[in-house]
Design a protein around this nucleic acid. Structure first.
Lengths: 195, 195, 195, 195
DNA sequence: CATGAATGAGAGTTCATTCAT
DNA sequence: GATGAATGAACTCTCATTCAT
């Protein structure tokens, strides 16, 4: 595949991403993507064979970018608590953004496909996040910023709460206040009183 | 609609329930339900106009039954910690049951429909569960079984963790060990050491 | 068929008539009539086997009633011109009444069915009307109220114009002014200047 | 849509036209047209979304062609009476042609749809015809071929009579004799004795 | 007589996928 | 590579008609 083809592939993925954000995963048809991309029906099939294939690639793209953002915030010069707060605020922002959000599509995708554990990007993301938070907590405990008996347990707990908030945001609905209360609860357990 | 019709309606709902457990919500067609029920195409439309309508009713049925189970366990003669453990074990059992489980269908349904808050059965369930756990925690604190500063916050935290585990079970996958670790973490925060 | 059945039959016909006025002939289903009558599906089939059958009967009823109205106006004590004017005014009223009008249904019915000439109620009505007008014109000519060389031709001409206006009312639309102009044209040919 | 598509579109319209002539408008389904065209179900939807859309286009085609015929006969070298006779004979031919005739379909279409006056092709046709006849009559009066006091009224009268004959042809039925009698009556009013 | 549940045929419509150009 | 016309399968939904009660 030439340079030009690669460019087109990327264009399709970026356009499809918007479609998935708009309509979730299951409702999106090849036709939707063809129309959004303004290419021919046959043209799309030259690059991708199904919406599943497209979505998988979109998710891969997404993950690469997100990872970058993650490391960015960590390499910054700040106290451990600051970094944790930054991370939680970013999560909150994501949570409350109803549109422009691949959450629903991602869930719908994983509901349907039985993805082998190895290739499960979501799993990788989750585990990576737990690890980072754990490191953060340990660092915080070390320099006396936090109190935390079982940092690994706490890190996982935080991630599951965030996961719970994320899904709730798209089912029962969550307000900013609800998210704040939850985050404050977590921080208090770490011995941090929110500003 | 006579007695006989009511029976048939219930039969359809029960059959549809199995279909939703098998295939989720979005992929289920009226045809699927017709075939599962072994009735005629038009016959189904006599009772329900769409899969959305059917699913809503299935969920209502489900909720009524669940509520009963809930109250049953509470009226039993047991220590507060016992009841809490019972509840968490039930949740764990549900979590790990991949099949025979309406979770995925329910999520898929709520992703698509914008249900008014008042009619949001999921919301009712969640809020009810939080309230019950809160009461339980307060009772436990009162008689010295638990330690817990902010019972309301803790109750909500527990529910979000469970919600997070539930969705994770259908995306990244959770093992029994993972659930156990999480529950133990929670109990330890309440000052209970698991057996 | 007992007295009670006859009453029910008449009730169905009267209700069906309203339905036909509302929706024309072709779009009306047995279901529509069943629902309008608020009787059972099977019940309707005890009396009528199809919408065609029902419509035919409705038309028969209609014709009997109309005939009565016709003779009424003629037995009245009035000048010939008065009677003609009365007839034309009645026709105009009918023409402009968009709702409460079986015209469309009747046309639709006759378009589809190939009714044997003998049973063609519409044909009977038309011929009867021509004859009456002809008689009227002859009477008018006799006593010097009109001028008219070929009364039979004129009578037919009037009826075709009315027929043309009637169909136009439901296709291109006619205003009251248009009808008036047309009627005045006819009357002028008869040597009558409208008031 | 390329040249080839245009050709296919025309092919569909011409085929559909035959179907409409055969079965009227209301009874024609997309399936009927698909089968007549011997194309696939989805193929038809590529070009038209409903029978209404197809019929409208058929009517447009029809109108363009008819207009041409009209002007042709007028630009010919003939006396005014000749042209009028030609027009009436053409109308008569149309009237008596039971098959190969869009009349019924057109009426059925206009019964159902509420076409805005501006777009009402039938209205345009009618008004155009009235105007042409009027001009013809005026020309005939000018050179002494006819007698006619109110040319506009007479033109409209002629058109309504033709309209009346047309609808009657499909309801009560008209024979050639009946049409002839009617036309002779009209001509006699213009002071023309038919051959 | 009357009911209304049940059936199944049939119309509408949308898409994934192919293929000649 | 790219196009977009074409196909056919699959789904939704509505009714005429029957039949056990």
């Amino acid at each position: 595949m030439g340079e030009k083809s690669l460019q087109k592939k990327r264009f399709i993925l970026e356009t499809a991403r918007k479609v998935f954000m708009e309509k979730g995963y299951k409702s999106v048809t090849m036709k939707d993507i063809v129309e959004a991309c303004e290419i021919s029906r046959g043209g799309l099939y030259l690059y991708f064979g199904s919406t599943a294939e497209i979505f998988m690639e979109v998710l891969r793209m997404e993950t690469e970018e997100t990872d970058d953002v993650f490391s960015d915030s960590i390499t910054e010069d700040a106290t451990v608590a600051d970094i944790l707060m930054l991370f939680l605020k970013e999560q909150k922002r994501e949570l409350l953004r109803k549109r422009n959000n691949l959450t629903v599509a991602t869930y719908e995708y994983y509901f349907g496909e039985t993805v082998p554990k190895k290739d499960n990007i979501l799993k990788h993301r989750f585990d990576a996040a737990v690890k980072i938070i754990e490191k953060l907590l340990e660092a915080g405990v070390e320099n006396g910023e936090f109190y935390c008996e079982d940092c690994h347990g706490m890190a996982r707990n935080i991630m599951f709460v965030l996961e719970g908030l994320k899904i709730s945001a798209h089912t029962v609905g969550v307000t900013e206040d609800m998210v704040d209360e939850e985050l404050i609860f977590i921080l208090r357990e770490l011995g941090i009183e929110d500003e």
